[in-house]
Amino acid sequence: MAAEGKMDALGQFELHTALGGLGRSVNFTNSNLMMLLGGGLIIGLLYYGMKPRAVVPGRLQSLAEISYSGLLSMTEGSIGPEGRRFFPFIFTLFFFVLMGNMLGLLPYSFTYTSHIAVTFGLALLVIVVVTAVALRIHGMHFFSYFFPEGAPKLLAPLIIPIEVISYLSRPVSLSIRLFANMVAGHVMFEVFATFIVLLGGAGVLGASIGILPLVLNVVLVGFELLVAALQAYVFAILTCIYLHDAVHLH
C-alpha cells in the first residue's frame, strides 16, 4: 500500500525510550510514559473533580461522580450485592484501559493497549484474581466448576479437559479482543492517511479525490472514540462476569 516513502502502518506501535538519557538508562519507554500519564489523569480527575464537594456538582465533579456510580452499579448489577468489594479493582481496570485507548487517539501519543504484552498482562491479572477469589470462597469445591453436575461420569475425561481449556482461553480472548481492536483502528487511520498523502501528490484530480479518505478519517476518529470506550467497558464487564462465576460457581 505504501510502496514509496517510509509509510509503515505498523511503525506507530514501536517502542522508544522516553525522557532522554534517564529513560534510556532504565529502559523507560513511551508506553510507560503514557501509562503514567493515564494513571495521573485518573487520579487527577477524581482528586480535582471531588475537591469542591458541591451538593450540586459542576462538570468535572459530575464526571467523577457519574463514572463512580455508573461503574458501581454495573459491578453490583453483574456480580450481585457482594460484588461491591471488587469495585476498586473493576474501577481501576476500566479506567486504565479507557485511558490507554483514549490517549492513544491523540496525535504523537502512543496506545499502550495496542501491545499484547500489556493487554495479556492485564488479562492474566484478571484471571489470577478470579481464580484466587473462587478458591478463597469455595476452596476445593471450586474444581467442580470444571465438571457440570448431572453430566454422565463416563464423559468426564472429555468434559474436564474441554472445560479447563475453555477456562484458560478466557485471558487469551480477553487480551486479543482489546489488542486487536486497538491495532485495527490505528492501522486503518494510518492506511487512509497514507491514501491522502499519495493522492495529494498526484495532481489536481488526485487531490480532489484525496478529500474522500480525509473525510473517512474524520469519521473514523468518532468511531474510534466509540470503540475506545466500548472496549474498556467490555473488558470491565467481562471481568465482572468472570467474578460472578467465581463467586457463585454458576
Binding site: S78, S169, S173, R177, I237
Partner: peptide
C-alpha cells in the same frame, strides 16, 4: 442474574467475538 453485555451487539460484533473465542481456545490448547 447477570445478563451479560448482550442485546446491543451488531452482527459484525457477534462475528468478531465468535471468531476470537474460537481462535483463543484453539491457541491455548
Amino acid at each position: 442474574p447477570a445478563s451479560g453485555a448482550k442485546g446491543t451487539a451488531s452482527p459484525m460484533g457477534i462475528g468478531v467475538r465468535v471468531g476470537i473465542e474460537l481462535v483463543s481456545a484453539l491457541a491455548v490448547s
